[in-house]
Design a protein around this nucleic acid. Sequence first.
DNA 1: TTAATAAAAGATATTTTTGTCTTTTATTTT
DNA 2: AAAATAAAAGACAAAAATATCTTTTATTAA
Lengths: 145, 145
Amino acid sequence: MAIFSKTCEYAIRAVFFIAHKTATGSRVGIKDIAQGIDSPEHFLAKILQDLSRKGLISSIKGPHGGFYIDTPALSRPLSEIVEAVDGNSLFVGCALGLKQCSEINPCPLHNEFKAIRNRIHAMLATTTIGSFNEELMEGLLSLKK
Amino acid sequence: MAIFSKTCEYAIRAVFFIAHKTATGSRVGIKDIAQGIDSPEHFLAKILQDLSRKGLISSIKGPHGGFYIDTPALSRPLSEIVEAVDGNSLFVGCALGLKQCSEINPCPLHNEFKAIRNRIHAMLATTTIGSFNEELMEGLLSLKK
DNA sequence: TTAATAAAAGATATTTTTGTCTTTTATTTT
DNA sequence: AAAATAAAAGACAAAAATATCTTTTATTAA
Ligand code: FES
Ligand code: FES
């Protein structure tokens, strides 16, 4: 199992892609995004529609339209994307699937896993949507293949 | 998303359950295991058949038969269970679903995620199947609800 | 050696995830 | 106003994960 769903993987990659492509005020179309992150176009469209409805990204229809991320949104944490798509189970759920992760009824992995879970959350909470724009422009980081 | 598949969650819980129930040489039936870890009986049966075929647990048919884990197997790491069920993608896969996680073509989350992934692997590699037997017997840890 | 027990195996069903295709709506340009 | 563009929405399809039910095989006990 991967740590994120396919939907979430595409969402994060797309958001990074849109952020770095539109940091200068332009827009980018679904076709470009899909090929830029190597994802199925129509499936990605659904995901972006959802993120757009939730206000995490923006879009405009018609000629010269497309998706974009405005400057204030660039400083929002990645955890908001993950929560919007996969919910918060990764941040609060039990490693072994107990209905409720708790200190009073812990599973065997609870203590170790709690620390790992916190680290995952810290990574996503401290990483902003725009934080890799420079590295992406310089081609130091990859969003496909 | 959870970190393990349902199948893997059931597998780990069942293995801990069998380990602590059969540490003294007895056996435990699928019905008891399923109710002891609150899982669907027939689905769990498939999972245990698989683990049994792979030699991670043992079983005997017929009256007084059932599943058990012998003493040497008690010291095998939990990572073997996870690998048998979910494969090794959790230990080597890219956080963002790139085909290949690598230093030369890293995704934005690579550095942070690599450390997290290593910690997950460390947790599973250092935890043995029998390591929680005492706490389970004392009722300090839970495998259901 | 027959009956009972319990896992193994096989077949089928349901749900969720992932993916595709078509139509509609909003916006812009001509 | 008409045509072109591009996202939004809707309908549908395929694949994978999860779950259930039935039959078979191995073992034991009577
Ligand atoms: S109870 Fe399982 S991780 Fe907390
Ligand atoms: S390339 Fe994504 S985690 Fe290594």
